[in-house]
Design a protein around this nucleic acid. Structure first.
Lengths: 234, 234
DNA sequence: CGCGCTTTTGAGTGGCATCAACGTGGGTGG
DNA sequence: CCACCCACGTTGATGCCACTCAAAAGCGCG
C-alpha cells in the first residue's frame, strides 16, 4: 500500500476502519488529500454533488439559512466524520471549514461504485448515517425545548466530548481546557440563539464557577457534573 | 407469492419497491402485519431494539423529552416510511401512533440478514436514510430560527404535502382540505411551541383568509402561495 | 498607534410562555 | 334522552426570557 493512507490519522476510526489494506489501496487510488483553510467553503447548498470526503483533521460546519439572512448550523463534522451527499444530484447545505482542515476526497460516482463492491463499507456507512440521524434528532430537543442556559451547557459538553480524543494536544488527562473552534456567533447559530445571549450565558457560567475563560477562545470545565445538571434541567 | 404483500398499499413506494416478487417472498416469510390503534406506543426509548417495520397506513410520531416533562417530536412517519433502529441494541425514541395504523414488522436480526443478502435493498435503505437526515436537518432551521407564524405555516404545508398521495380520500384533486392527525398539543411539540401559540397562529391565519377551519381537526388551504410566503419570510 | 473584528455589557422591547377562564364536542352512565 | 364529564381548543391578561439596539472594551495586525 502506498503513501496516502499509511500515515492517516483517522485510518482506524473513520469509515475506512472496516477495510483491509488491499481494499484500502483501491480506495486510495481514487482519493486525494485536500487542505482547506479556515473559513473556506467546501461546498455551497445547491451545488452539484460531485464529491464525498472523510475529514482527517479540523472541524467543518454544515449550515443553511433563510432568505433574510438568519442562519442555522445543522451539523458539526469532526475528524473521522464524512462529508458529502451520496445518491443525490445536488448538495443540500453549505459546508465551511471552521479551522484549517484536511480532507480525504473522492469523486462521488467513483466512491459509490466502491461502495457497491465493498459491501461491508456500505454497511458501515449505513450504520454511521443512522447514528448521525439519531444525533441530529437529539439536537432537535435542544433547539425546540431547551432554555438558553441549557443550550449553552449542552453545547460545552458536546464540544468537550468531540474534541477530547484527537484534537486536544494540551489535554493530557484530567485537564479540561479546550480551544473552541467556533466564534460566539457560530455557537449562536448552532444553538438557535443570538451572539449576545451566548456571551451572557458563558459569563454567567464563569461567574458561577462552572467554567473558566482564560481567553475568549479557551474554555476550562471546572465542574463537569454541575454543567451536566444545567444541561438537562431548568 | 402468497398473500401478505400482494395487496400491500405501499408495495411500490416503500423500501420493498426495489425487490422482485421472489425476493419479496423471502422478506414476506419473516414479516407480519400488525395493527396499532391510535395513541398506542409502538416502542419506548431505551427498549431493546428488536423490531424493524414499514408503515403501511397511518401516522406515527417519534418523540423524546426532558426529565421535567417537556416533549419534542423529532419525526413524523407516514405510509411507506420505515420505523426502527437497525445496528443498535436499544431504541432511541418513543414511537406512538397518532392514528390507527398498520405496520409490516420484521425481527431486527432477520431483517439485517436480508439486507446482507439483498444488496440493492440495503442501498435503497441507505439512500432513504440519507434523505431522512436531510429532512431532519432542514427541520432544525425551523426550530432554531423561525418565528411562530413561520413555523405554523411551514407545518401546514408539510402536512399537506405528506397527506396528499395516500391518506386523503376526500381530496380528489384541487381540493385542499385535510384532516390533521395531530392535536394542537402535538403540533406544538413538533414546532417547539405551546398549545396556545399554535392555536393563536391558526386563528390568525383563518382571520387573514389564508386557511379555513371547518372544525378543529380539518384545515382548508385557501391561499397556498400566501402560506408559502409566510413560511419563509418574516 | 490606529483600524477592524470579536466579545462583552447595558438598557429597553417584544414575542412567546404562563396562568387562568371559558367554550365545545364526543362519550358514558344514570 | 339527557346530564355529566373530560379532553381538547380558544381567548384573554400578565410576565419573563431572549432579542434588539447601542456602545464600550479587548485583541490581533498592519
Amino acid at each position: 500500500m502506498s503513501g496516502v493512507c499509511a500515515d492517516c490519522a483517522v485510518r482506524d476510526v473513520a469509515l475506512c476502519a472496516v477495510l483491509s489494506d488491499s481494499e484500502l489501496a483501491r480506495l486510495n487510488s481514487i482519493g486525494r488529500r485536500q487542505r482547506i483553510s479556515k473559513g473556506a467553503t467546501v461546498q455551497w447548498a445547491g451545488d452539484e454533488s460531485i464529491m464525498f470526503a472523510n475529514i482527517i483533521s479540523g472541524v467543518v460546519k454544515l449550515s443553511t439559512g433563510t432568505a433574510d439572512g438568519r442562519e442555522q448550523i445543522v451539523g458539526l463534522l469532526y475528524p473521522a466524520d464524512s462529508l458529502g451527499r451520496l445518491f443525490a444530484l445536488r448538495v443540500d447545505y453549505d459546508a465551511t471549514a471552521l479551522t484549517d482542515a484536511e480532507l480525504c476526497t473522492f469523486p462521488r460516482n467513483a466512491f459509490e461504485r466502491v461502495l457497491g463492491d465493498f459491501h461491508h463499507l456500505e454497511r458501515q456507512l449505513l450504520a454511521r448515517t443512522l447514528g448521525e440521524l439519531e444525533n441530529t434528532r437529539r439536537w432537535m430537543l435542544l433547539l425546540g425545548r431547551k432554555s438558553a442556559e441549557e443550550k449553552v451547557a449542552t453545547f460545552l459538553l458536546h464540544i468537550t466530548e468531540r474534541l477530547k480524543p484527537t484534537d486536544c494536544p494540551g489535554a493530557a488527562k484530567g485537564s479540561h481546557t479546550y480551544e473552541l473552534p467556533l466564534t460566539r456567533g457560530q455557537i449562536a447559530d448552532v444553538l438557535g440563539l443570538t451572539i449576545e445571549t451566548v456571551s451572557r450565558q458563558m459569563t454567567r457560567l464563569k461567574t458561577n464557577g462552572v467554567i473558566a475563560l482564560p481567553d475568549s477562545k479557551r474554555v476550562t470545565i471546572l465542574q463537569p457534573q454541575l454543567l451536566q445538571d444545567l444541561a438537562e434541567a431548568a
